[in-house]
């Protein structure tokens, strides 16, 4: 009986089993789906952007899991760009949210209904 902590997944140079990768991908997909549910259901602008950050996070887990599976560093390098885009998005989106809040005195997404066109 192997040690429970290192079962089927030892450290870096050892290859990882495809089924282990599948477990990580399932976790990442579930996190993405939860973030999507939040983006579609919540009506507060700030929480909606928080949910997009949650989806970025899920994508990062999938990238790192693939990086571990293929034993190269491409996935981890791409997480740096996920971080870059998340930071840029947070700066722009929050500036926009503050601007919108100052105009209508409300964070609700439905006060901007006229933008539906």
């Amino acid at each position: 009986m192997t040690d429970l902590v290192t079962m089927a997944q030892s450290s870096w140079p050892e290859p990882m089993a495809p089924a282990t990768l599948a477990a990580y991908l399932l976790l990442s997909g579930a996190m993405f789906a939860i973030g999507l549910v939040g983006f579609l259901t919540r009506r507060n602008l700030i929480v909606m952007f928080l949910c997009t950050e949650l989806m970025f996070q899920a994508a990062g887990i999938a990238l790192v899991a693939f990086s571990r599976f293929h034993l190269n560093h491409t996935g981890q390098t791409f997480v740096i760009f996920v971080l870059t885009v998340a930071a840029a998005e947070a700066a722009l989106a929050l500036a926009l949210v503050v601007l919108l809040f100052r105009q209508k005195d409300s964070l609700s997404a439905s006060v901007w209904r006229e933008m539906k066109g």
């Binding site: 089993a17 089924a19 282990t20 990580y24 976790l27």
Partner: peptide
């Protein structure tokens, strides 16, 4: 249930406890 099914179908490839 899904994760358990995944683990039971591949007993030799269970992710470790920290996962």
């Amino acid at each position: 249930v899904v994760l358990l099914g995944l683990a039971l179908a591949n007993l030799d490839a269970i992710p470790n406890l920290h996962f």
